[in-house]
C-alpha cells in the first residue's frame, strides 16, 4: 500500500515514565524503542503496546541504533557510554558497555553493510566501532564543536557527521580521511547578545537513489535562550554539493528533530519547540511543505517504520505516538 501523507493520523500513543528524548523502530518493525529522561530505554511491542524497560545507562540515553539484522541494539547516552543489547530478548540486559566518548554521545548510525557503528559526541570526535565485538576501528578528528549527528552513506563507503557549527564532514570510512565538507552554517547561529552558540546539524538523511542528502535543524533564531527559532531542512545535491532546497514549515516555530526520506520520494520531518509538535512533509519541487500535521505535544524525535506507513514520534508528554500515513479505517 502506498503511503498517503495527507491522511496521516495518530493511531497509538504509549506512555513512558518520563519525557522522551528519542525513538527508533527496530529493522523488523516489531518494536519501537524510546529513550527517556529517567535514564531508561523502553521497548514497546507494535502488536499490542506491551512495554519492557531496559535499564543500564547512568544518564539520559540520547541515541539508538540497530544492527542491520535487528539482533543487536546499541544505545549511547550522556553517561558517555555505548551499551549493546539483545533487541528481542524477553528482558534485554546490557551485553557490552564501553565508555566511548569524553562527553555526551549524541548520535549513532550503523553502516548499511552491517559491519560498523559510528558514534559522535561532545568531545568533538566521531568514532567508528565494529558492531559485533565493540572494537574501536577509527577515531575521526577535526570537528571544532560538539558533533550532533552522524550518518553512513547508503554505499557504506562514506560517513557524514554534522556539528554545532553547521560543519558537515564527509569521511572515507576505509581510510578515515576527510573527503570534503558541506556548508550547513545556516543551521547555526552565534547570538552576540546572549553570547551563545545555537543550532547545529541535528539530522542527516539520504534519499533513496543517493542523489540527495538533507541536513535538518533550525534557523531564524533571534532569541536562542527563549526558543524563538524556526525549523529548517537544507537539501543538497550529493555530487555537486549544490543547495537545492531550504525546506521550512509555514507558521511553525521549532527545530527539526528528525527527518527521513520515504521510499516514495517525499521527505518527512518532525519538529518540536515553542510552536508545538508537527510532522512535516516535503517534495523536492518547492521549499514549503505540501502537508503538515499538528501533534498533541512537542516532538523530540521521529522514525519511519519499515512498512512505509507508520511513523513514530517521541514527545515531552511521556508519550511515543504512532501515526499512520493512510486514511482512517
Amino acid at each position: 500500500m502506498d503511503a498517503n501523507p495527507q491522511a496521516t493520523h495518530i493511531v497509538h500513543q504509549w506512555k513512558c515514565e518520563s519525557p522522551l528524548i528519542n525513538c527508533r523502530f527496530e529493522p523488523a518493525g516489531k518494536f519501537v524503542f524510546t529513550a527517556t529522561e529517567d535514564f531508561s530505554i523502553y521497548r514497546f511491542a507494535m502488536a499490542d503496546g506491551k512495554r519492557t524497560t531496559l535499564a543500564g545507562h547512568k544518564s539520559w540515553p540520547q541515541a539508538i541504533a540497530f544492527s542491520i539484522d535487528g539482533r543487536l541494539m546499541v544505545s549511547g547516552g550522556c553517561d558517555d557510554q555505548l551499551i549493546w543489547w539483545g533487541t528481542g530478548d524477553e528482558q534485554p540486559k546490557p551485553i557490552r558497555k564501553i565508555v566511548a566518548h569524553r562527553g555526551w554521545i549524541r548520535a549513532l548510525d550503523v553502516s548499511p553493510d552491517g559491519k560498523l557503528i559510528a558514534s559522535a559526541g561532545n568531545d568533538s570526535l566521531v568514532k567508528v566501532w565494529n558492531i559485533e565485538n565493540g572494537e574501536l576501528v577509527a577515531t575521526l578528528t577535526g570537528h571544532a564543536k560538539h558533533v550532533y549527528s552522524v550518518a553512513f552513506h547508503p554505499n557504506s563507503k562514506w560517513l557524514l557527521s554534522g556539528d554545532l557549527a553547521g560543519d558537515v564532514r564527509q569521511w572515507d570510512v576505509q581510510s578515515g580521511k576527510l573527503e570534503r565538507q558541506f556548508d550547513a552554517k545556516p543551521l547555526t547561529t552565534y547570538n552576540s547578545g546572549q553570547r551563545v552558540d545555537y543550532g547545529g546539524v541535528r539530522t542527516i538523511a539520504f534519499n533513496g537513489d543517493q542523489s540527495q542528502v538533507v541536513f535538518g535543524g533550525l534557523h531564524k533564531a533571534p532569541n536562542p535562550l527563549g526558543a524563538v527559532n524556526e525549523p529548517l531542512i537544507m537539501r543538497f545535491d550529493w555530487s555537486s554539493q549544490k543547495l537545492l532546497r531550504s525546506h521550512t514549515i509555514k507558521g511553525v516555530k521549532g527545530i527539526i528533530w528528525g527527518s527521513a526520506f520515504h521510499p516514495q520520494g517525499f521527505l518527512v520531518g518532525a519538529t518540536g519547540g515553542s510552536g508545538g509538535g508537527f510532522l512535516g512533509f516535503w517534495n523536492d519541487d518547492k521549499d514549503e511543505e505540501f502537508h503538515k500535521l499538528k501533534m498533541p505535544n512537542t516532538a523530540r524525535a521521529m522514525d519511519l517504520h519499515p512498512d512505509g506507513i507508520q511513523i513514530a514520534t517521541a514527545h515531552h508528554d511521556r508519550c511515543v505516538r504512532i501515526s499512520f500515513m493512510k486514511p482512517k479505517t
Binding site: 546572549q194 553570547r195 545555537y198 536562542p224 535562550l225
Partner: peptide, 11 residues
C-alpha cells in the same frame, strides 16, 4: 547568559 528557558543543558 544563563536565562536558559530553552536547551538549558546545551547552554
Amino acid at each position: 547568559n544563563y536565562d536558559t528557558h530553552n536547551e538549558n543543558f546545551n547552554f
